[in-house]
Write a protein that binds this DNA or RNA. Sequence first.
DNA 1: CTGAAAGCGCTTACAG
DNA 2: CTGAAAGCGCTTACAG
Lengths: 352, 352
Amino acid sequence: MCVTGFIRGDSLRITMAKIAELAGVSKATVSRVLNSSGYVSENTREKVMKIVREFNFVPDARAVNLSKSMTRTIGLVLPSTSGPFYMEVIRGIEDVLAFDGYYMLLMTFEASKNKNETRKKYKSLLEEKRVDGLIVFDPEADEPFVQQMARIKKPCVYLGREYQKIPIDTVSADNETGSRLMMLHLLETHGFRKVAFVRGPLDSYHGMERFKGYRKSLTEWGIKCDDELVFCGNFTREGAEMVAESIFSAKPEAIFASNDEMALGIIHKAKQLGYSLSDMPAIVGFDDAPWAEHINPALTTVRQPMYDIGRTAARLIMDRLSDNGHKAPMKVKLHTNVVVRESCGCFKNRFE
Amino acid sequence: MCVTGFIRGDSLRITMAKIAELAGVSKATVSRVLNSSGYVSENTREKVMKIVREFNFVPDARAVNLSKSMTRTIGLVLPSTSGPFYMEVIRGIEDVLAFDGYYMLLMTFEASKNKNETRKKYKSLLEEKRVDGLIVFDPEADEPFVQQMARIKKPCVYLGREYQKIPIDTVSADNETGSRLMMLHLLETHGFRKVAFVRGPLDSYHGMERFKGYRKSLTEWGIKCDDELVFCGNFTREGAEMVAESIFSAKPEAIFASNDEMALGIIHKAKQLGYSLSDMPAIVGFDDAPWAEHINPALTTVRQPMYDIGRTAARLIMDRLSDNGHKAPMKVKLHTNVVVRESCGCFKNRFE
DNA sequence: CTGAAAGCGCTTACAG
DNA sequence: CTGAAAGCGCTTACAG
């Protein structure tokens, strides 16, 4: 059986109409066979499947999407892919999406110069129905914008912040408490009293949260927050190396860098300045970067449950998609925890 | 002007037909305005845009895709997201896609148990026209399967391998030459003659390539390839730690682990066994993992240009998409290079 | 159990 | 410069 115009196995231009014609049935029947929906006699099912296989026919997803009014795709927006742990978020999300047969559209802020352009772009992902739902990690998005996102009334969860006043799903880790847990370790376990803090960029939401935790802890312990012990960084290693000397000259017992990159820079500088591992002040970070356990001394830091954040967010989206019930927005908050290694002074110099 | 059934700003159920009706023109005209295609009088353009803005109308991408017969989406398939450098590939690809206004659909092997299932899935991405093109990093895909991919006759580039006999675009880094460059460094610069090699899983294509480079170098230098110096690993740190002791007892001058994870495991074990940094044999890796420069000693390793691989692949796809010329498949091969740090013996113990 | 027909929401020649 | 109409390739009540 050779039909003019088509080559077997060439799925390029074959459509359901052709399959129907060749099988001697209607498009509706082919559709039923392919979707296992409605009744089809075993006989015609066979007949149809034979042709389908012969031509390796695969329905056009764009047409299916339009008809069924869905896409089986979830958008994911991340600040970057190179960050230490965004990959964990992706993994958490993919695990649940793959299970439900959904696809993931990935977009980052990295490739574009203008953040607001990127925001417009991810917003339209939802508006133009290119995705059924959206997961966004954009902690610098301001409230009016997030309000707009909420008004689209499509499944959308923001990661990393709570936006308490906005009716939108969020999943975040408690950065402030993370800071406080670290301070607890430094103040209680080690008995330090003079703890320096290296801030991130002042417009960073998480940087702010972490700093708040530091200050509140000091207050709780009745320690005055000394401005001389608070330093400005920009979350980069280089930036931290620049201020490292002035930090050292303030003679702190411990240095709390608000991310691991900066902690690394400070440790590096300390070595350059001739500090040995044993007389270096305690230096701790935040994030638990993939290399944090490998550096020398191994870095004590705060870990955010990135995988769980991704997983929880994806679950939330899937729920919204199936229930389509108008449940109240959820504000999920996950725990951070301190990963104790060597750089705080615990287990110091195990192999030396 | 309040139209029944619609709330301003509610883009949920408004379609082009409604916009046309409200603006008192035809759908065709609205389409022309929105796409800036064909002639439209300034007057009607204004009229239409006013309504469009008022209702925040965004055309349904699914319908556009179906009509225009495209999706502006490229699929990307990766072994995992947690690997050391896949993120670089993503970044390279995204940089060019974002520039051309394309979207990226990401899929990994990680979330699924069965590799062949995943292959079927990414193949259908192209068949069902969910994406316009596909970039695949799946070095374990066998030739018959890749043949099938080639026959789909849609833009598709395979990363990491050449598949010389198959007419399909590929972009890969030269792993074998990478190994040889490393061996050159070990043999020539350091004058080592007794170099152990730790293989990856035997079914790994890259593992094979790297091993070949090792053997060829030895042959070239007239050194007999001693089986006693070749060890089996599985690309994991734990696996390497298991064989580390037997490696040491063979007393090699240098140990070439065919990836960084294994090098790390061996270094770790060496420390545990009491080796000091100065009497440890040279230990080098492959991949340049993000933490490779941070460990102690800093790891000498081979670097693949992952960003360039991604970028090149995306460019290739974009070209295919615009030209739609039937140019011959391209086999792009990029260079690897040795990153010299401390673990080979160069700059040993700078800060000690 | 099966088919004719309308519909999903756009685009694009073709007339005028 | 603009509109009527066909088309993209499916799905889905509705009849029978």
